[in-house]
Amino acid sequence: MGAIRIQLEDFDPGVEIAALTQGRTDVGAVASFVGIVRGDDALEAMTLEAYESFALREITAHVAEAKLRWPLLDVSVIHRAGRLTPGARIVFVGVASMHRGDSFRAAEFLMDYLKTRAPFWKLEEKSSGANWVEPRGTDDEAAQRWK
């Protein structure tokens, strides 16, 4: 079974992918995405702040919308909060469907919406100090194409 979770602890992508197909034989494709803290630009750590109840609601609504747009069999979205260091996993999106096209597209749709709608904020720590990450126009453009 898929899950929607916000958590401080790490997740195991293999376990999450396996959960999407466990006990069923109708799945023909699972597409997954894992977002990772990139350690460029002298980044020391990144703290993710969440408006947790709203984020769960927003993710649940977009998973429901994805299921209306594509014939999906199951979906998982896991987003971490708290202080993460370079190399750490931040987010997992997994989509199970009969055919690969639907799961690829739905995974991208969900990530684009997470970036632009889900209430999370990133505080970057560098040796020069801490700064809140500004939104990127390219993320808005990516989300616009699903309108």
């Binding site: 408006y51 709203f54 984020a55 987003h79 889900a118 209430p119 999370f120 904020w121 809140w132 939104p135």
Partner: peptide, 25 residues
Amino acid sequence: QIHGGFDATITDSDEIAFFPPVTGG
């Protein structure tokens, strides 16, 4: 927990949040 503008109406039982543009994912 619904995104809205500054013209959104409010009542005393509401939960009203203020935040910067989101940067998750």
